[in-house]
Amino acid sequence: MAKKDLKTTVQDNVIWKSIFRPGSIYRKGYRDTSRDRALASMNNVLYHLHPVKVKRHGLKLTYTYCLGGLSFFMFILLTVTGIFLMFFYTPAAGAGTEVAYLNMRELSASVTFGQLVRNLHRWGAHAMVFTVFLHMARVFYHGAYKPPREFNWVVGVILLILTLLLSFTGYLLPWDQLALWAVTVGTEMMGFTPVFGEQVQFVLLGGVEIGPNTLLRWYVLHVLFIPFVTVVFLAVHFWRIRKDGGISGPL
């Protein structure tokens, strides 16, 4: 009797089969045929994102430059590294309780991989703003916002604004001179909103000027509220891409 090979042992049991649906590339008997290629998409959680087949021209790197996908990847990466950072950060400031700034110092000095993860989070945030900008430009130059995709462009603009807000609220959290004064420039402008200027500024800052309340407020916005809203709009964005007939083009 030939020994059962490892692959068969792992794959040929009820548990494995209960996890991987028919057509999964991890399931026993996957064959590289049209039928199984179709099932690999259709019977997979990824079917929420991708149809079974996509237009060939959309695969060409020079059509999307993967920019939308990379924006999404950056978002995921920022979520993962951000959760790591949350373990070591307390949004507290003020005389005698400068915990936030101290945490940042400790992060690079004594947390394993602390500095590296902080770097990833920081450069990733800049990269995401950049890829989202470029993604918008490529969508424009392809005229990819034309019917039936007008509304998805609108969702996109909202995502752009959310991306900027995520980045900006995060900028304050290290609570160093750089953060404080960069944010001061930004929020002073908001104070000039007609009619409600003062109120807008008061709500955003949690007071008349940037202080410990602002830090707490922006922390909650940064790690909870804005990411949550972003995820909702991302879901609509991806759903609309498929309902609008997949990627636009070819030109």
């Binding site: 990466l77 400031a93 400068e98 700034y101 940042m104 110092r105 690079s108 500095q115 590296l116 902080r118 770097n119 990833l120 989070h121 920081r122 450069w123 990733g124 990269a127 290290p174 609570w175 160093d176 001179q177 750089l178 953060a179 404080l180």
Partner: peptide
């Protein structure tokens, strides 16, 4: 991004 993060540290100024 990993390579960039390995060589370039995110800035941290003095306390606000």
């Amino acid at each position: 991004l990993l390579i960039a993060s390995f060589f370039l540290d995110a800035p941290l100024g003095s306390l606000a």
